[in-house]
Simulated assay, not measured.
Amino acid sequence: MPGRHQQSRSHTGALVVGGTAGALLRYGMTTAWPLPRHVFMTTTVTAAVAFMVAGFLVSVGVTTALRAAVFGMCASAASLSAWAVLTISQPPKLSIAFLIGTPAAAVAGLLCGLLAARVVAR
C-alpha cells in the first residue's frame, strides 16, 4: 500500500502544478489579447483543445504524473466559470456567441479527443 499512496500524492501534486499552469496560460492569453473578440476566440479555441486533450487522457486512463499535470492544465485553462463570467459581461451579440460557441467547441473537442483515443487503441 505505501507505493500506491506515494503515487496518489505525486498525481495530486502534478494536478495542482498543471492547474496552476493552465490558469497562468489563460491569464497570459487574456492579457495578450484583451479585446472582446480576441477573448472570445481564445476562450473558444482553448475550450476545444483542452476538452479534446482531457477527453483523450480520460479515455486512455490517467496513469502517470505527467498525464495528471496535463489534465490539470486542460481543466484550468478551459475554466467554464470564466466562460460564465464572460457570457454575462459582454454586449448582447458577443454574449450569445460566448453562450453558444464555447460549449459547442468544448463538446466538439471532447468528441475529437474520444475519437482520437479510439483510433490509438486500435
Results as ranks from 00 to 15, higher is better:
residue 93 K to V: 12
residue 69 A to Q: 05
residue 19 G to Y: 10
residue 31 T to M: 00
residue 34 P to K: 04
residue 30 T to N: 07
residue 68 A to W: 05
residue 82 A to N: 15
residue 64 T to W: 06
residue 7 Q to M: 08
residue 42 T to W: 09
residue 100 I to A: 12
residue 97 A to L: 12
residue 8 S to G: 12
residue 45 V to A: 12
residue 43 T to D: 10
residue 35 L to P: 00
residue 27 Y to C: 00
residue 36 P to Q: 03
residue 41 M to G: 03
residue 8 S to N: 09
residue 100 I to W: 08
residue 24 L to Y: 08
residue 43 T to M: 10
residue 12 T to L: 15
residue 73 M to I: 01
residue 66 L to H: 05
residue 63 T to L: 04
residue 35 L to D: 12
residue 83 W to P: 01
residue 28 G to P: 00
residue 87 T to C: 14
residue 94 L to C: 08
residue 21 A to R: 03
residue 119 V to G: 00
residue 43 T to K: 02
residue 41 M to T: 13
residue 97 A to E: 07
residue 95 S to Y: 09
residue 116 A to R: 02
residue 113 G to Y: 07
residue 76 S to N: 05
residue 24 L to S: 03
residue 115 L to I: 03
residue 34 P to H: 06
residue 66 L to N: 03
residue 3 G to M: 02
residue 6 Q to W: 07
residue 73 M to Y: 01
residue 59 S to M: 13
residue 24 L to V: 08
residue 68 A to L: 04
residue 76 S to W: 03
residue 80 L to R: 02
residue 86 L to Q: 15
residue 117 A to W: 05
residue 37 R to T: 11
residue 16 V to L: 15
residue 31 T to C: 00
residue 12 T to S: 13
residue 103 P to F: 10
residue 44 T to N: 05
residue 27 Y to G: 00
residue 91 P to L: 13
residue 3 G to I: 00
residue 91 P to I: 08
residue 60 V to L: 04
residue 41 M to L: 15
residue 107 V to Y: 11
residue 34 P to I: 01
residue 100 I to P: 02
residue 36 P to S: 04
residue 95 S to P: 09
residue 61 G to V: 06
residue 19 G to C: 13
residue 22 G to F: 09
residue 116 A to F: 10
residue 14 A to I: 14
residue 115 L to M: 10
residue 112 C to K: 03
residue 60 V to Y: 02
residue 99 L to E: 01
residue 74 C to N: 05
residue 117 A to Y: 05
residue 1 M to T: 02
residue 58 V to P: 00
residue 33 W to M: 10
residue 13 G to F: 14
residue 115 L to H: 10
residue 102 T to W: 00
residue 29 M to A: 06
residue 122 R to G: 14
residue 35 L to A: 14
residue 89 S to F: 12
residue 66 L to W: 12
residue 121 A to C: 01
residue 113 G to M: 06
residue 118 R to Q: 12
residue 76 S to V: 07
residue 95 S to V: 05
residue 110 L to D: 07
residue 43 T to H: 11
residue 55 G to W: 06
residue 41 M to R: 09
residue 104 A to I: 10
residue 10 S to H: 13
residue 41 M to V: 15
residue 42 T to I: 14
residue 9 R to H: 05
residue 29 M to K: 00
residue 65 A to E: 04
residue 47 A to N: 15
residue 91 P to A: 15
residue 9 R to A: 14
residue 23 A to G: 13
